[in-house]
Amino acid sequence: LVRYRTISKIPQITLNFVDLKGDPFLASPTSDREIIAPKIKERTHNVTEKVTQVLSLGADVLPEYKLQAPRIHRWTILHYSPFKAVWDWLILLLVIYTAVFTPYSAAFLLKETEEGPPATECGYACQPLAVVDLIVDIMFIVDILINFRTTYVNANEEVVSHPGRIAVHYFKGWFLIDMVAAIPFDLLIFGSGSEELIGLLKTARLLRLVRVARKLDRYSEYGAAVLFLLMCTFALIAHWLACIWYAIGNMEQPHMDSRIGWLHNLGDQIGKPYNSSGLGGPSIKDKYVTALYFTFSSLTSVGFGNVSPNTNSEKIFSICVMLIGSLMYASIFGNVSAIIQRLYSGTARYHTQMLRVREFIRFHQIPNPLRQRLEEYFQHAWSYTNGIDMNAVLKGFPECLQADICLHLNRSLLQHCKPFRGATKGCLRALAMKFKTTHAPPGDTLVHAGDLLTALYFISRGSIEILRGDVVVAILGKNDIFGEPLNLYARPGKSNGDVRALTYCDLHKIHR
């Protein structure tokens, strides 16, 4: 019993810090008490220290592992850092350059016999395009090294910054494609005289377009951006097909006994025919423009016929181009109408809503002055909100995010209106959640004399007048207030005048 009563005193000691020596009952000389009392004092002292730490809000209350900052290894790049964003855009520009100039170089340097010394005699450094290609190869190699040090988000939505895990993730992902696209074939085969082989191998750079397509997928929600990307894709495919079309004609031209190829026909049409040795002929500019003209006309199913396939190889390629053109029509131009419709969806919704308003007016036989006010209010409210119901949009977000959005939407009023000066951010967040926005066209009466005042109004834009009878008592403008002081009276009061809008007004109100 003594032991039980001794232990039962522990909660009292913990909360009230009572010393055991003052209790005459606990001072009985028993061996059990002498053993338990020192333990009680020690526990009391420890609990006292913990309570003191909690009340003082000291940093040592938290466990040590929670006080440590997340460790980022040296030379690790955050995937959302500004440097990584700028670097990704730079790589994107280099990939676009590669997609345009690599097929052009591979096709127009394929057994090209233009006048001038061969590239091997001039030297590697004197070729501007080769120098640019070398810079692109170096940048792609540097990009691989950067990807080995860039964080990523795993399946659990955690940012991984450990170098080993980053390397394994990159090896399992895009490393092989990036490595093949970054191989400097110019340096590996330079001086061997195989410019045709170098041009063909350099087309491996186009593998990076797969990554670019995935990154550009984030802009699919913007109709104008999608339309622009589709047109660029169409032009890029036409450019690639033009390079292939020229390569076919250029390879067949020296081996044909009869002059029936499209390059021969082009030379005869523009007065620059090929001679018996295969030299001469149109310039590279004429060849490229004509090839691009043929691919565009074939892809769009126009086909004027002034550039036509004559050999079997050219006919087979033309059939493939027609098939590609039909697929592009289905996948690209078939979506253009939907994209344009999405661009004008706001206008369509406006006309639909206006039609419903006019049908309501016609069905209920609203008189002319009231009908005009109804239409003007709808037009003004639509121009202010673009038909978007803010309350319906915010309803799907958590309250903390709703408060931040409301604070942002009402920031101008909260910053410049005098009653809100000096208020804490928590108070402003709470008030912003209570605001209701209303609009009024010129001549609209917001409050009639004798109406119950259940709200306090803040003028965000425009001006109003307060009338008693036919006498203008006051004219209020931006950041002015009218209405009933909230919670100042037990019952809502009545208006002693009319409140009429002089201009288009936007008002925020808080109800009782």
Rank of each mutant, 00 (worst) to 15 (best):
A242V: 01
R429H: 01
S337I: 03
L188P: 08
L187T: 10
Y219V: 13
D186Y: 06
T300Q: 01
S220L: 05
D257S: 11
N156D: 09
E112D: 11
G249E: 01
T150Q: 01
I166M: 13
D404K: 01
E196H: 15
F333D: 03
G305F: 01
D257H: 06
G123V: 08
C232S: 13
A182F: 04
D178R: 01
K215I: 01
F360W: 01
D137N: 04
T233F: 13
F296P: 01
A130N: 03
G278C: 01
D286T: 01
S298Y: 04
V180N: 01
K434R: 11
D286L: 01
Y124T: 03
I324L: 13
Y219N: 04
A247C: 01
I96H: 01
S105K: 15
I284F: 01
E221P: 04
P184A: 01
A348W: 15
P128H: 03
A235G: 11
Q415C: 06
L446T: 01
F108T: 01
S192Y: 07
A338V: 14
N310E: 03
Q415I: 12
R259Y: 08
G305W: 01
S283A: 01
A204M: 07
L241C: 05
E157R: 14
K436S: 09
V131A: 06
L145M: 15
L279D: 11
A99T: 01
L343A: 12
S345A: 09
W240R: 01
T98G: 01
G123E: 01
V160T: 06
C417W: 09
L216D: 01
G173L: 01
Q353H: 10
S298R: 03
W174D: 01
G443S: 03
I96T: 01
T352P: 03
F296A: 01
S412I: 15
F360K: 01
K436T: 12
L200K: 03
P398N: 07
M328D: 01
K272D: 01
A392G: 08
G426K: 03
P70E: 14
N312I: 03
R74K: 07
A155P: 13
H416C: 12
A125V: 07
T300A: 04
P82E: 03
A238Y: 01
G305Q: 03
R421A: 09
K434P: 01
S297E: 01
W240Y: 01
G116E: 05
L92Y: 04
F108Y: 01
A167Y: 01
C122N: 01
T233C: 15
H439G: 05
F228L: 04
E252N: 04
I339A: 03
F296L: 13
G123T: 06
K285F: 09
L279E: 12
W174A: 04
K202E: 01
L431S: 02
H408W: 04
H416Q: 13
R74S: 14
L200I: 05
V289N: 01
Y384T: 06
